[in-house]
Simulated assay, not measured.
Amino acid sequence: MNALIIYTYPNHQSLNYAFLQKVVQGCQENPAITEIQVLDLYEEQFDPRLIFHEQKRRRDMYRDPQLEKYREQLTWADKIIFIYPIWWGRPPAMLLGYIDQLFAANFAYRDKKGLLPEGLLKGKSVVCISTMKGPTNYPLLWLHNAHKILMKRALFNFVGIKRVKFFEFGNMESKKGKQQKKLERVHRYFREVMS
């Protein structure tokens, strides 16, 4: 199994970075995972802006040469792991810009007759690890699970990815946030996951 980790946080002295390290460590200890790639969107200086004009059209995004290496990573990966904070009830603009550009028509899905398109990323699985300052149940109780609906239903199911797991960790700026326990939970999951 090939694991692609997409890390979206600008600070390497952060809790999010500690989650990245635990994910990598767990993957390295897991005999089912043969290769790991890490894409740090901030370190990569990924440009999240959508730019369209006469020479660069939205319908051609699936073959944009500037995005080729990222498409190759997604094609290569069996498991895609996203690590990011929840800001204003949703992932950061940097990650959303990556999604806007990479999960494009004719690469991630293909329009067909009927209501839903054909998902072209079938067979892959996704894990979303997100952190937030507010309580863990805040997205569920206050935002009606908008984050999970956005990621699972509006994105991953749309492109054919049915196996999606979430780790939503709240109270991450609190001294009582049980950060170490949550880091160990993520490490254990990736050390043991088989598909």
Score class of each variant (00 low, 15 high):
N157K: 10
W142M: 15
C128F: 09
K122L: 05
G134V: 08
I149N: 13
K152S: 09
S125D: 10
I149V: 13
F167H: 03
A154S: 15
K152R: 14
W142R: 13
K133A: 15
L143M: 10
I129C: 01
F167P: 01
I161P: 00
K148Q: 15
S130E: 03
F166K: 03
S130L: 04
N157W: 14
R163C: 07
L141M: 09
T131C: 07
N137V: 12
H144M: 15
R163F: 07
L141G: 02
I149T: 09
L141I: 14
P139R: 02
F169N: 03
T136L: 02
F169D: 00
M151F: 02
P135T: 14
A146T: 10
L155N: 08
N137R: 11
K162C: 04
K124R: 15
I129T: 02
L150Y: 09
K162H: 12
H147G: 06
H144V: 09
K152L: 05
V127Y: 02
N157F: 11
A146K: 07
P135Q: 09
F156H: 04
K148C: 08
K122G: 03
T131Q: 03
K162G: 05
I161V: 10
K122C: 10
R163G: 02
W142V: 12
N137D: 15
I149Y: 14
G123L: 05
V159T: 04
M151C: 06
I149G: 04
L150G: 10
W142L: 15
K122S: 04
H147M: 13
L141R: 07
L141P: 01
K152M: 07
V127K: 00
P139T: 04
S130W: 00
K165D: 08
L143A: 06
M151Y: 00
L155T: 13
H144N: 14
K165Q: 11
M151L: 12
K162F: 06
R163Y: 09
N145M: 07
C128I: 04
K133T: 14
K122Q: 10
L155W: 01
M151E: 08
K122W: 05
K162N: 12
V126D: 00
K162P: 00
F156E: 01
T136A: 01
I149F: 13
S130Q: 08
P139Y: 02
N145P: 09
Y138D: 11
K148E: 11
L140S: 12
H144G: 12
L150V: 04
H147Y: 09
K152Q: 15
V159F: 00
V159L: 04
V126P: 00
W142H: 11
P135N: 13
V164K: 03
N157H: 11
S125N: 09
R153F: 13
I161G: 02
L141T: 10
W142K: 12
A154C: 14
H144F: 13
K122H: 04
L141F: 14
